[in-house]
Amino acid sequence: MKIVELQQVEKVYQGVPALQPLDLELHQGEVLGLFGHNGAGKTTTIKLILGLIGATTGKVSVFGEDPTRSDARHLRRKLGFLQENVSFYDQLTGLEVLQYFARLKGVAKQTCPELLAQVGLGDASKRRVKTYSKGMRQRLGLAQALLGEPELLLLDEPTVGLDPIATQDFYHRIEQLKQQGCTVILCSHVLPGVEKYIDRALILGQGQLLAQGSLAELRQQANLPATFHLQGDALTLPEPLAARLQHSANGRQLAVPLAEKMAILQQLSGLAGLEDLDIQLPSLEDIYTYYIRTQCGPEAGQ
């Protein structure tokens, strides 16, 4: 089932194109990573899907309906959203804030304490939000997005301000939701460690679609080399590998096209003097940097 469908969607703000024609299809249970530099059109895409703004041209449909129509408002019960930098109501306690949003969403208040406990705010639920740290506000935001077991979850920079353990917990929660059939859009500059959890990535730059596909597909398209880290003082490489060897502060490195990876690995493993070997595949960050650099110029993405 198609949860989100964008057909040639374009958004122009006062003559400035924020998003150039974009096609996107998202099926139930998929997790999409939406990446791009600041002002790349991520938030615009999210707002279009949420129905907060209308497309200049093209068609947006969410759960099969146009999200900007007022009769599609009931669909928002199935939706969870967390935006960047939300600070909530300082004078109310975490629990009161969550209960307020629960009432608006038509979700039973009794689920609130449990939800707060799940995001690690169980002990702080009776404290006023003004005493919360950035990470705690972010958790409260997450709890709010998870109200009423949404079928579509849009998260803009969800792990900002979260410590590593909380980030791990967060990704596990996404995994669980995905298994329950929830569709998730994760939006970010690059998130380290997000690779394992996303099915597909979409990279935007200056309002244009730069690349779209699974991580394996993107790796292939970008054709970035794998890096071999070699250790061993007595190691001498046969030609032509020796010419490609680079020396850096942390040892000797060999950049190998992905297609030749196995052949070279076999060749290397037979060599005397090789003490250790590490293989690093191009990470999401490398792929992202590659697309941004090659298509938006070297300054972009900094």
Binding site: L50, L52, S70, R73, H74, R76, R77, L79, F81, Q83, E84, N85, V86, S87, F88, Y89, F101, L104, K105, G106, Q144
Partner: peptide, 14 residues
Amino acid sequence: ENGTLLLLMTYPLS
């Protein structure tokens, strides 16, 4: 300015 207006507008609330 708090960001809650944007959030509230994604709720089933006109």
